[in-house]
Design a protein around this nucleic acid. Structure first.
Lengths: 66, 66
DNA sequence: ACTAAAAGTAAATAAAACTTTACATTTTAA
DNA sequence: TTAAAATGTAAAGTTTTATTTACTTTTAGT
């Protein structure tokens, strides 16, 4: 699963720690998701979606399904 | 997290077992998600999205975030 | 009403997401 | 150029998602 978190953080001038705070998760969780180590839970994806005002599909792309 | 899986299954005339097969998960997993026992992983949500040709937001609603 | 298919549920287990602590490396700015 | 901030990473532990097996209840068709 690919994601645009790094770019979105840059646009909003958020550090990983900033984003983690706003999402209510740890900095390491944000880092791991950003680096593709694992995928966020659906609720966390929804939080990101709301924060950046983008659809989940605009933030995450599942390359497995074409 | 609410979802429209039961209705979508009805529209497509899928049993829980049918849907489970198409998604590559167990029937009990489909049942549990449908009954709101837990949320699907993000990759599983994407599979559902593709199968029903609906956005994740059209299938799942996070009532926690208004 | 009977039967079979579908749906609901539960317990035990496995796998994945996430936390915490901690330290190393890279980037930025004074 | 060096100090601080930001990022990367790792291990151990917790929580949540998903599986398997198995049994009960509900629904639909005859």
């Amino acid at each position: 699963m690919k994601n645009r978190l790094k770019v979105l953080r840059a646009e909003y001038n958020f550090t990983q720690a900033d984003l983690a705070n706003k999402l209510g998760v740890s900095r390491q969780t944000v880092n791991a998701i950003e680096k593709g180590k694992f995928d966020p839970s659906l609720p966390l994806a929804f939080k990101m979606s709301k924060l950046f005002q983008l659809s989940i599909e605009e933030i995450f792309q599942n390359e497995e399904l074409e």
